[in-house]
């Protein structure tokens, strides 16, 4: 069953045509990894999936609703799509626990007591059980990103979007965050769309890898097809560049 279906998606900023006809389908329990050079439109594509960017044209059907249409109650759709940002974006005015509890309590999903229980449980899942009362600023980057994942999970989403979740982290922190994401994919069967430069993660976890360049999907396939038998020239040169590093 398809969870997300993007058809002929275009996005234009003034005369900068960033997405130029993207078709993409994400199935239930599928992990899709998006790779591509800087500025190719990966973030833009990901952000149109929960309407943080408004598409210029095309359709973005999530759970059967075309969110590209006007008049859609986008807040309801967003409740079911968690998002994790490159720079964490934890709420600086709230403690770790309250970051996680804010949305479920404010949106009437959980009572305060239940939200506290859930937040503690989620902190356990991401390996930070004793940080409930900690202030956001006292955390390391890797800890922040794991709290951000817990925060997104608190709304019980069935899709998770990740925009380069590890690229702002010190190398020794990357593993912790990737492990949480792997756990999510493998143990919970979470449907995930992940923009990342971590090719190891893509090879190990992705069901499908999508290569975006110049505003369109140039090639997609299993990790084996993409990494070991690339056909597209741009993909080949992209891979050779990142493997050099």
């Amino acid at each position: 069953m398809s969870k997300i279906k993007v058809t002929d998606l275009h996005k234009q900023y003034a005369d900068n045509h960033v997405l130029r006809g993207v078709d993409l389908e994400v199935k239930d329990n599928e992990v899709v990894v998006i790779i591509g050079p800087s500025g190719s439109g990966k973030s833009t594509l990901l952000r149109t999936l929960n309407k943080l960017e408004e598409p210029t044209s095309g359709s973005v059907v999530v759970h059967g609703t075309d969110i590209a249409q006007k008049g859609v109650n986008i807040d309801q759709v967003r409740e079911q799509i968690g998002m994790v940002f490159q720079h964490f974006n934890l709420f600086n005015n709230l403690s770790v626990g309250k970051n996680i509890m804010l949305a479920p309590v404010e949106l009437g999903k959980l009572s305060k007591e239940d939200a506290v229980k859930q937040a503690k449980k989620l902190l356990g899942v991401v390996g930070l059980e004793n940080k409930f009362d900690a202030s956001v600023n006292s955390l390391s980057g890797g800890q922040k990103q794991r709290v951000a994942i817990a925060r997104a999970l608190a709304m019980n989403p069935d899709i998770m979007l990740f925009d380069e979740p590890t690229s702002a982290l010190d190398p020794e922190m990357v593993g912790d965050v990737l492990n949480v994401m792997k756990k999510l994919a493998k143990e919970k069967g979470m449907t995930m769309v992940v923009v990342t430069h971590e090719m190891g993660f893509a090879k190990e976890v992705a069901d499908r890898v999508v290569f975006v360049d110049d505003g369109i999907i140039q090639e997609e396939g299993t990790p084996d097809e993409i990494f070991n038998h690339p056909k597209n020239d741009r993909l080949k040169s992209f891979l050779s560049k990142i493997l050099e590093v």
Partner: peptide, 21 residues
């Protein structure tokens, strides 16, 4: 700006995001 985006991405409406975050 990321603060507002994070709040909105959780499904919080504009007004609530404004007031709480």
């Amino acid at each position: 700006k990321g603060q507002m985006e994070a709040a909105r991405s959780l499904g919080l409406p504009f007004g609530k995001s404004m007031r709480k975050v």
